[in-house]
């Protein structure tokens, strides 16, 4: 990131701009902070906490909620399921999408046009998921796969596949084609050029794509709540179940919200450099 000062003078303008930026960032961070603050409160402090709910200043923090929630088998089950589903879906989508991305980036498809294939994969991403949830539910019921992690892996891999295709397509386009052509001349064949030359070079990008789609799968809710209710419960579904006959227990909700939010957010920070490209499906470079 280059420092750039379009049309502004250093000095007071800089200070004011910085202050506004810090204020904005604090506003955007507040809800996550609030969930965290809530997770540290005793139930009695829930509705009476003063000010901004700062631990030690506005209330005495406790780890009891965390201990209670993380010791609940259901929470552990949900965290385990979400992790397994997200990793499996990411690996499956990478396995399916990377060769396709390579084919689109390198080969010429005269009849279908390469960019039309790309847009076809993309258009799948903009479909409203509610349009496929009912037939998918019925199909899984027919196959006896309701409430299984397997069904959720299948559908999530489908949702994140377009990301893999467009991100990796761009990665392969950015690689110098000469390396692969040299391998072809040496008689490696197209598969060899892909497997031994292009794939290792694309590995960092694959890792970044994998992280981002892990986060998307982790956050998915509509299919998780439709397909998995008990044994295949995911973290978001577990949160949705937190409202019971005793009403919303804010202190537990804080813990659950934090356990849901922390993994994808950490991943986003790790994969920061790739996020813009990932979120715009490869159209804008960050």
């Amino acid at each position: 990131m280059g420092d750039r000062i379009p049309g502004s003078k250093r000095g007071w303008g800089e200070v004011i701009a910085s202050l506004i930026a810090i204020t904005v960032a604090l506003i955007f961070a507040f809800p996550i902070y609030w969930a965290f603050s809530q997770s540290l409160r005793n139930p009695i402090d829930t509705y009476t906490v003063a000010g901004l709910g700062v631990p030690w200043i506005n209330f005495t923090p406790t780890l009891n909620n965390w201990i209670d929630q993380l010791g609940t088998p259901e929470t552990v089950q949900a965290l385990y399921n979400s992790t397994v589903i997200a990793i499996s879906a990411a690996l499956l989508a990478l396995a399916l999408g990377t060769p396709a991305a390579y084919a689109i980036a390198r080969f010429r498809f005269e009849r279908w046009k390469n960019r039309d294939i790309t847009v076809w994969f993309l258009s799948q991403r903009v479909l409203p998921p509610v349009a496929t949830v009912i037939p998918f539910y019925l199909t899984m019921r027919y196959l006896g796969l309701l409430d299984t992690k397997f069904a959720l892996v299948l559908i999530n891999a489908t949702f994140v596949l377009p990301y893999v295709v467009v991100i990796l397509r761009q990665t392969f386009l950015d690689l110098p084609v000469e390396l692969e052509e040299a391998a072809l001349i040496d008689g490696a064949g197209h598969w060899g050029a892909f497997w031994r030359i292009a794939l290792p070079l694309a590995a960092p990008s694959m890792a970044a794509a994998g992280l981002i789609i892990f986060a998307f799968t982790w956050n998915e809710f509509l299919f998780a709540v439709s397909i998995g209710s008990n044994t295949a419960i995911t973290v978001p579904v577990h949160i949705a179940g937190a409202i019971d006959t005793r009403g919303v227990q804010f202190w537990f909700m804080g813990v659950r919200a934090m356990t849901a939010i922390i993994p994808p957010v950490i991943i986003a920070l790790i994969a920061q450099r790739y996020i813009v490209r990932g979120l715009t499906l490869g159209a804008v470079r960050g």
């Binding site: 904005v24 955007f28 961070a29 809800p31 809710f221 919303v248 909700m253 939010i261």
Partner: peptide
């Protein structure tokens, strides 16, 4: 980096957090 957090925060958790806010 702080501005990236909301994008990746689990929407369902966000919904419940704002419910409490």
């Amino acid at each position: 980096a702080v501005m990236i957090l909301p994008i990746f925060a689990t929407p369902l958790a966000v919904g419940y957090t704002f419910f409490t806010i």
